[in-house]
Design a protein around this nucleic acid. Structure first.
Lengths: 176, 176
DNA sequence: CATAAAAGTGAGTAATCACTTGCTAATATA
DNA sequence: TATATTAGCAAGTGATTACTCACTTTTATG
Protein backbone atom coordinates (compact mmCIF):
# COMPACT_ATOMS: atom_id res chain seq x y z
CA UNK A 1 0.00 0.00 0.00
CA UNK A 2 1.39 3.35 -1.09
CA UNK A 3 1.94 6.26 1.29
CA UNK A 4 -0.70 8.41 -0.32
CA UNK A 5 -3.27 5.64 -0.16
CA UNK A 6 -2.61 5.22 3.56
CA UNK A 7 -2.92 8.97 4.03
CA UNK A 8 -6.30 8.98 2.29
CA UNK A 9 -7.52 6.17 4.53
CA UNK A 10 -6.32 7.95 7.64
CA UNK A 11 -7.93 11.25 6.76
CA UNK A 12 -11.16 9.57 5.65
CA UNK A 13 -11.32 7.65 8.93
CA UNK A 14 -11.02 10.83 10.94
CA UNK A 15 -13.52 12.79 8.86
CA UNK A 16 -16.08 9.98 8.54
CA UNK A 17 -15.90 9.46 12.29
CA UNK A 18 -16.38 13.15 13.07
CA UNK A 19 -18.71 14.40 10.36
CA UNK A 20 -20.27 11.17 9.10
CA UNK A 21 -20.07 9.55 5.69
CA UNK A 22 -22.61 11.81 4.02
CA UNK A 23 -21.25 14.83 5.85
CA UNK A 24 -17.78 14.40 4.37
CA UNK A 25 -17.04 15.33 0.75
CA UNK A 26 -14.36 13.61 -1.29
CA UNK A 27 -13.01 17.08 -2.05
CA UNK A 28 -12.41 17.72 1.65
CA UNK A 29 -10.72 14.37 2.10
CA UNK A 30 -8.42 15.06 -0.85
CA UNK A 31 -7.57 18.52 0.38
CA UNK A 32 -6.77 17.38 3.91
CA UNK A 33 -4.69 14.49 2.61
CA UNK A 34 -2.79 16.75 0.19
CA UNK A 35 -3.86 14.60 -2.70
CA UNK A 36 -5.81 15.14 -5.90
CA UNK A 37 -9.47 14.22 -5.64
CA UNK A 38 -9.13 11.85 -8.58
CA UNK A 39 -6.67 9.69 -6.67
CA UNK A 40 -9.38 8.66 -4.24
CA UNK A 41 -11.38 7.19 -7.11
CA UNK A 42 -8.31 5.63 -8.69
CA UNK A 43 -7.61 3.72 -5.50
CA UNK A 44 -11.07 3.01 -4.15
CA UNK A 45 -13.39 3.19 -7.16
CA UNK A 46 -15.97 5.36 -5.47
CA UNK A 47 -16.71 6.98 -2.14
CA UNK A 48 -18.41 3.89 -0.76
CA UNK A 49 -15.38 1.83 -1.75
CA UNK A 50 -13.29 4.05 0.49
CA UNK A 51 -15.65 3.39 3.38
CA UNK A 52 -15.60 -0.33 2.66
CA UNK A 53 -11.80 -0.34 2.86
CA UNK A 54 -12.06 1.26 6.30
CA UNK A 55 -14.66 -1.24 7.42
CA UNK A 56 -12.46 -4.14 6.38
CA UNK A 57 -9.49 -2.69 8.25
CA UNK A 58 -11.74 -2.37 11.27
CA UNK A 59 -12.84 -5.98 11.13
CA UNK A 60 -9.24 -7.17 11.14
CA UNK A 61 -8.28 -4.84 13.96
CA UNK A 62 -11.23 -5.96 16.06
CA UNK A 63 -10.47 -9.63 15.73
CA UNK A 64 -6.86 -8.97 16.75
CA UNK A 65 -8.11 -7.21 19.86
CA UNK A 66 -10.54 -9.94 20.83
CA UNK A 67 -8.25 -12.86 20.01
CA UNK A 68 -6.37 -13.01 23.36
CA UNK A 69 -9.67 -13.22 25.22
CA UNK A 70 -10.92 -16.06 23.03
CA UNK A 71 -7.71 -17.99 23.73
CA UNK A 72 -8.09 -17.53 27.47
CA UNK A 73 -9.04 -20.79 29.19
CA UNK A 74 -9.69 -19.48 32.71
CA UNK A 75 -13.27 -18.27 32.97
CA UNK A 76 -12.58 -15.63 35.61
CA UNK A 77 -9.86 -14.11 33.48
CA UNK A 78 -12.10 -14.17 30.43
CA UNK A 79 -14.55 -11.98 32.32
CA UNK A 80 -11.86 -9.70 33.69
CA UNK A 81 -10.24 -9.21 30.31
CA UNK A 82 -13.62 -8.45 28.76
CA UNK A 83 -14.26 -5.77 31.34
CA UNK A 84 -10.81 -4.32 30.70
CA UNK A 85 -11.36 -4.28 26.94
CA UNK A 86 -12.81 -0.77 26.56
CA UNK A 87 -10.08 0.66 28.78
CA UNK A 88 -7.40 -0.42 26.34
CA UNK A 89 -8.65 2.14 23.83
CA UNK A 90 -5.99 4.80 23.30
CA UNK A 91 -6.77 8.29 22.06
CA UNK A 92 -5.33 7.73 18.60
CA UNK A 93 -7.88 4.94 18.15
CA UNK A 94 -10.86 7.15 19.00
CA UNK A 95 -11.75 7.88 15.37
CA UNK A 96 -11.58 4.20 14.60
CA UNK A 97 -14.04 3.18 17.28
CA UNK A 98 -16.25 6.19 16.80
CA UNK A 99 -16.76 5.23 13.18
CA UNK A 100 -17.43 1.64 14.23
CA UNK A 101 -20.19 2.62 16.62
CA UNK A 102 -21.68 5.12 14.19
CA UNK A 103 -21.86 2.53 11.44
CA UNK A 104 -23.98 0.28 13.65
CA UNK A 105 -26.81 2.67 12.88
CA UNK A 106 -26.37 2.54 9.12
CA UNK A 107 -28.62 -0.01 7.48
CA UNK A 108 -25.85 -1.32 5.23
CA UNK A 109 -23.29 -1.99 7.96
CA UNK A 110 -25.19 -3.49 10.88
CA UNK A 111 -22.92 -6.57 11.05
CA UNK A 112 -23.18 -7.27 14.75
CA UNK A 113 -21.79 -10.73 14.20
CA UNK A 114 -18.29 -9.43 14.74
CA UNK A 115 -18.72 -9.73 18.50
CA UNK A 116 -20.46 -13.09 18.40
CA UNK A 117 -17.35 -15.19 19.22
CA UNK A 118 -16.66 -13.06 22.28
CA UNK A 119 -20.29 -13.41 23.37
CA UNK A 120 -20.10 -17.18 23.03
CA UNK A 121 -16.87 -17.36 25.00
CA UNK A 122 -18.37 -15.22 27.72
CA UNK A 123 -21.36 -17.55 27.89
CA UNK A 124 -18.98 -20.44 28.29
CA UNK A 125 -17.11 -18.62 31.07
CA UNK A 126 -20.26 -17.86 33.05
CA UNK A 127 -21.40 -21.42 32.50
CA UNK A 128 -18.12 -22.77 33.82
CA UNK A 129 -18.57 -20.59 36.90
CA UNK A 130 -22.03 -22.14 37.49
CA UNK A 131 -24.04 -19.02 36.84
CA UNK A 132 -27.67 -20.15 36.46
CA UNK A 133 -28.21 -18.17 33.23
CA UNK A 134 -24.85 -17.84 31.52
CA UNK A 135 -26.13 -16.60 28.14
CA UNK A 136 -28.02 -13.74 29.70
CA UNK A 137 -25.08 -12.85 31.92
CA UNK A 138 -22.94 -12.73 28.80
CA UNK A 139 -25.36 -10.46 27.00
CA UNK A 140 -25.55 -8.09 29.95
CA UNK A 141 -21.80 -7.91 30.42
CA UNK A 142 -21.37 -7.36 26.72
CA UNK A 143 -23.88 -4.52 26.89
CA UNK A 144 -22.07 -2.98 29.85
CA UNK A 145 -18.73 -3.17 28.08
CA UNK A 146 -20.12 -1.61 24.90
CA UNK A 147 -21.71 1.23 26.83
CA UNK A 148 -18.48 1.90 28.68
CA UNK A 149 -16.65 2.06 25.38
CA UNK A 150 -19.19 4.57 24.13
CA UNK A 151 -18.86 6.56 27.34
CA UNK A 152 -15.07 6.60 27.06
CA UNK A 153 -15.28 7.85 23.48
CA UNK A 154 -17.50 10.64 24.74
CA UNK A 155 -15.78 11.69 27.98
CA UNK A 156 -12.34 10.10 27.91
CA UNK A 157 -10.81 7.15 29.71
CA UNK A 158 -10.07 8.50 33.19
CA UNK A 159 -13.66 9.48 33.91
CA UNK A 160 -14.51 5.78 33.69
CA UNK A 161 -11.38 4.31 35.28
CA UNK A 162 -13.05 3.77 38.66
CA UNK A 163 -15.79 1.76 36.96
CA UNK A 164 -13.23 -0.79 35.84
CA UNK A 165 -12.10 -1.89 39.30
CA UNK A 166 -15.67 -1.61 40.55
CA UNK A 167 -16.92 -4.02 37.90
CA UNK A 168 -14.01 -6.42 38.27
CA UNK A 169 -14.58 -6.57 42.01
CA UNK A 170 -18.31 -6.96 41.51
CA UNK A 171 -17.94 -9.95 39.22
CA UNK A 172 -15.20 -11.37 41.42
CA UNK A 173 -17.28 -11.41 44.59
CA UNK A 174 -20.27 -12.87 42.82
CA UNK A 175 -18.26 -15.94 41.88
CA UNK A 176 -18.47 -18.52 44.68
CA UNK B 1 -49.48 23.67 14.59
CA UNK B 2 -50.89 23.16 11.10
CA UNK B 3 -51.46 19.71 9.59
CA UNK B 4 -48.83 20.16 6.91
CA UNK B 5 -46.24 21.26 9.45
CA UNK B 6 -46.94 18.13 11.51
CA UNK B 7 -46.65 16.03 8.36
CA UNK B 8 -43.26 17.53 7.55
CA UNK B 9 -42.03 16.81 11.06
CA UNK B 10 -43.26 13.22 10.88
CA UNK B 11 -41.67 12.52 7.52
CA UNK B 12 -38.43 14.24 8.51
CA UNK B 13 -38.27 12.18 11.70
CA UNK B 14 -38.59 8.95 9.76
CA UNK B 15 -36.10 9.92 7.06
CA UNK B 16 -33.52 11.44 9.40
CA UNK B 17 -33.70 8.32 11.58
CA UNK B 18 -33.26 5.96 8.64
CA UNK B 19 -30.93 7.81 6.29
CA UNK B 20 -29.36 10.37 8.59
CA UNK B 21 -29.54 14.15 8.48
CA UNK B 22 -27.00 14.60 5.70
CA UNK B 23 -28.40 11.60 3.85
CA UNK B 24 -31.85 13.16 3.58
CA UNK B 25 -32.59 15.98 1.12
CA UNK B 26 -35.23 18.59 1.75
CA UNK B 27 -36.60 17.72 -1.67
CA UNK B 28 -37.24 14.13 -0.58
CA UNK B 29 -38.91 15.26 2.63
CA UNK B 30 -41.19 17.61 0.69
CA UNK B 31 -42.09 14.93 -1.83
CA UNK B 32 -42.89 12.30 0.79
CA UNK B 33 -44.94 14.78 2.79
CA UNK B 34 -46.84 15.95 -0.32
CA UNK B 35 -45.74 19.47 0.30
CA UNK B 36 -43.79 22.07 -1.63
CA UNK B 37 -40.12 22.24 -0.74
CA UNK B 38 -40.43 25.93 0.05
CA UNK B 39 -42.87 25.23 2.86
CA UNK B 40 -40.16 23.50 4.86
CA UNK B 41 -38.14 26.69 4.88
CA UNK B 42 -41.17 28.85 5.58
CA UNK B 43 -41.88 26.86 8.73
CA UNK B 44 -38.41 25.97 9.95
CA UNK B 45 -36.10 28.56 8.39
CA UNK B 46 -33.55 26.06 7.22
CA UNK B 47 -32.83 22.33 7.29
CA UNK B 48 -31.11 22.48 10.65
CA UNK B 49 -34.11 24.31 12.03
CA UNK B 50 -36.22 21.32 11.09
CA UNK B 51 -33.88 19.02 12.97
CA UNK B 52 -33.91 21.36 15.96
CA UNK B 53 -37.68 21.21 16.08
CA UNK B 54 -37.46 17.41 16.20
CA UNK B 55 -34.85 17.52 18.94
CA UNK B 56 -37.03 19.77 21.04
CA UNK B 57 -40.03 17.46 20.61
CA UNK B 58 -37.79 14.62 21.69
CA UNK B 59 -36.68 16.38 24.85
CA UNK B 60 -40.28 16.93 25.91
CA UNK B 61 -41.26 13.36 25.10
CA UNK B 62 -38.31 11.97 27.03
CA UNK B 63 -39.08 13.94 30.17
CA UNK B 64 -42.69 12.75 30.05
CA UNK B 65 -41.46 9.17 29.88
CA UNK B 66 -39.03 9.54 32.76
CA UNK B 67 -41.31 11.61 34.99
CA UNK B 68 -43.20 8.69 36.64
CA UNK B 69 -39.90 7.13 37.69
CA UNK B 70 -38.66 10.37 39.20
CA UNK B 71 -41.87 10.63 41.24
CA UNK B 72 -41.48 7.08 42.53
CA UNK B 73 -40.51 7.04 46.21
CA UNK B 74 -39.87 3.30 46.66
CA UNK B 75 -36.28 2.53 45.71
CA UNK B 76 -36.98 -1.03 44.56
CA UNK B 77 -39.70 0.18 42.23
CA UNK B 78 -37.47 2.93 40.89
CA UNK B 79 -35.02 0.26 39.81
CA UNK B 80 -37.71 -2.00 38.39
CA UNK B 81 -39.33 0.79 36.41
CA UNK B 82 -35.95 1.81 35.04
CA UNK B 83 -35.32 -1.72 33.83
CA UNK B 84 -38.76 -1.80 32.24
CA UNK B 85 -38.20 1.52 30.51
CA UNK B 86 -36.76 0.26 27.20
CA UNK B 87 -39.49 -2.36 26.93
CA UNK B 88 -42.16 0.31 26.80
CA UNK B 89 -40.91 1.38 23.37
CA UNK B 90 -43.58 0.66 20.77
CA UNK B 91 -42.81 0.18 17.10
CA UNK B 92 -44.26 3.50 16.03
CA UNK B 93 -41.70 5.17 18.29
CA UNK B 94 -38.73 3.42 16.71
CA UNK B 95 -37.84 6.32 14.41
CA UNK B 96 -37.99 8.67 17.33
CA UNK B 97 -35.52 6.72 19.44
CA UNK B 98 -33.33 5.79 16.55
CA UNK B 99 -32.81 9.45 15.76
CA UNK B 100 -32.14 10.14 19.43
CA UNK B 101 -29.39 7.57 19.64
CA UNK B 102 -27.88 8.58 16.31
CA UNK B 103 -27.70 12.20 17.38
CA UNK B 104 -25.58 11.26 20.38
CA UNK B 105 -22.74 10.85 17.90
CA UNK B 106 -23.18 14.27 16.31
CA UNK B 107 -20.94 16.89 17.85
CA UNK B 108 -23.71 19.49 17.97
CA UNK B 109 -26.27 17.36 19.80
CA UNK B 110 -24.39 15.42 22.47
CA UNK B 111 -26.66 16.72 25.28
CA UNK B 112 -26.38 13.74 27.61
CA UNK B 113 -27.76 15.81 30.45
CA UNK B 114 -31.28 14.75 29.53
CA UNK B 115 -30.85 11.53 31.50
CA UNK B 116 -29.11 13.17 34.45
CA UNK B 117 -32.21 13.37 36.69
CA UNK B 118 -32.90 9.67 36.19
CA UNK B 119 -29.28 8.87 37.00
CA UNK B 120 -29.48 10.90 40.21
CA UNK B 121 -32.69 9.23 41.25
CA UNK B 122 -31.19 5.82 40.58
CA UNK B 123 -28.21 6.74 42.74
CA UNK B 124 -30.58 7.69 45.50
CA UNK B 125 -32.45 4.38 45.15
CA UNK B 126 -29.29 2.29 45.38
CA UNK B 127 -28.14 4.40 48.28
CA UNK B 128 -31.42 3.84 50.10
CA UNK B 129 -30.96 0.12 49.55
CA UNK B 130 -27.53 0.28 51.20
CA UNK B 131 -25.50 -0.56 48.11
CA UNK B 132 -21.87 0.30 48.96
CA UNK B 133 -21.34 2.27 45.72
CA UNK B 134 -24.73 3.65 44.64
CA UNK B 135 -23.44 6.10 42.00
CA UNK B 136 -21.55 3.40 40.17
CA UNK B 137 -24.49 1.01 40.38
CA UNK B 138 -26.63 3.73 38.86
CA UNK B 139 -24.21 4.31 36.01
CA UNK B 140 -24.00 0.60 35.25
CA UNK B 141 -27.76 0.10 35.31
CA UNK B 142 -28.21 3.14 33.12
CA UNK B 143 -25.70 1.69 30.67
CA UNK B 144 -27.51 -1.65 30.66
CA UNK B 145 -30.84 0.00 30.02
CA UNK B 146 -29.45 2.12 27.20
CA UNK B 147 -27.87 -0.89 25.54
CA UNK B 148 -31.10 -2.85 25.78
CA UNK B 149 -32.92 0.03 24.14
CA UNK B 150 -30.39 -0.01 21.32
CA UNK B 151 -30.73 -3.77 21.01
CA UNK B 152 -34.51 -3.53 20.85
CA UNK B 153 -34.31 -0.91 18.12
CA UNK B 154 -32.09 -3.32 16.21
CA UNK B 155 -33.80 -6.69 16.76
CA UNK B 156 -37.25 -5.88 18.13
CA UNK B 157 -38.78 -6.15 21.59
CA UNK B 158 -39.51 -9.84 21.99
CA UNK B 159 -35.91 -10.96 21.44
CA UNK B 160 -35.06 -9.07 24.63
CA UNK B 161 -38.18 -9.82 26.66
CA UNK B 162 -36.51 -12.57 28.69
CA UNK B 163 -33.78 -10.16 29.71
CA UNK B 164 -36.33 -7.99 31.46
CA UNK B 165 -37.46 -10.58 34.01
CA UNK B 166 -33.89 -11.80 34.32
CA UNK B 167 -32.64 -8.34 35.28
CA UNK B 168 -35.54 -7.59 37.57
CA UNK B 169 -34.95 -10.84 39.42
CA UNK B 170 -31.24 -10.20 39.53
CA UNK B 171 -31.61 -6.79 41.13
CA UNK B 172 -34.35 -8.12 43.41
CA UNK B 173 -32.25 -10.91 44.91
CA UNK B 174 -29.27 -8.66 45.40
CA UNK B 175 -31.26 -6.39 47.67
CA UNK B 176 -31.07 -7.59 51.23
C1' DC C 1 -67.14 42.44 4.70
C1' DA C 2 -62.44 44.26 4.37
C1' DT C 3 -57.87 43.52 5.05
C1' DA C 4 -53.81 41.98 7.03
C1' DA C 5 -51.26 38.03 8.29
C1' DA C 6 -50.10 33.42 7.68
C1' DA C 7 -49.88 29.20 4.81
C1' DG C 8 -48.59 27.33 0.67
C1' DT C 9 -46.63 26.98 -4.12
C1' DG C 10 -43.29 26.29 -7.99
C1' DA C 11 -39.81 27.91 -10.65
C1' DG C 12 -35.69 29.41 -10.12
C1' DT C 13 -30.20 29.88 -8.28
C1' DA C 14 -25.44 29.48 -7.03
C1' DA C 15 -22.80 26.21 -4.88
C1' DT C 16 -21.44 21.75 -4.07
C1' DC C 17 -21.58 16.89 -4.99
C1' DA C 18 -19.47 12.33 -6.62
C1' DC C 19 -17.23 11.05 -10.36
C1' DT C 20 -14.68 11.10 -15.29
C1' DT C 21 -11.28 12.03 -18.60
C1' DG C 22 -6.92 12.98 -20.77
C1' DC C 23 -2.76 13.43 -19.49
C1' DT C 24 2.09 13.00 -17.16
C1' DA C 25 5.32 10.88 -13.70
C1' DA C 26 6.93 7.06 -11.37
C1' DT C 27 7.80 2.27 -10.82
C1' DA C 28 8.11 -2.37 -11.83
C1' DT C 29 9.35 -6.15 -14.97
C1' DA C 30 11.39 -8.54 -19.03
C1' DT D 1 17.31 -0.33 -21.43
C1' DA D 2 12.65 -0.81 -23.33
C1' DT D 3 8.00 -1.09 -22.09
C1' DA D 4 4.01 -1.99 -19.67
C1' DT D 5 1.68 -1.02 -15.49
C1' DT D 6 0.58 1.69 -11.78
C1' DA D 7 0.32 6.20 -9.29
C1' DG D 8 -0.94 10.75 -9.55
C1' DC D 9 -2.84 15.24 -11.21
C1' DA D 10 -5.87 19.27 -13.03
C1' DA D 11 -9.73 20.46 -15.18
C1' DG D 12 -13.62 19.35 -16.16
C1' DT D 13 -19.02 17.07 -16.07
C1' DG D 14 -23.99 16.61 -15.14
C1' DA D 15 -26.70 15.97 -11.22
C1' DT D 16 -28.11 17.33 -6.78
C1' DT D 17 -27.99 20.40 -2.91
C1' DA D 18 -30.06 23.86 0.41
C1' DC D 19 -32.31 27.79 -0.10
C1' DT D 20 -34.84 32.16 -2.27
C1' DC D 21 -38.32 34.80 -4.38
C1' DA D 22 -42.40 36.34 -6.49
C1' DC D 23 -46.66 34.92 -6.27
C1' DT D 24 -51.45 32.89 -4.88
C1' DT D 25 -54.55 30.93 -1.48
C1' DT D 26 -56.27 30.41 2.98
C1' DT D 27 -57.26 31.90 7.54
C1' DA D 28 -57.87 35.07 11.21
C1' DT D 29 -59.41 39.56 13.02
C1' DG D 30 -61.49 44.31 13.70
Amino acid sequence: MTDRKKKILGVALKLFANDGFNGTSTKKIAKEANVSEGLIFRHFGNKKGLLNALVQQAAERTSVLVAPILKEAHPKIVIQKTIELPFTITENEYSFWKLQFKLKWENDYKSNEKMKPLLDHLSWAFSALRYPEPEKEAVILNYIVESIAIGILRDGTQSHESLKTFLIEKYKTLLL
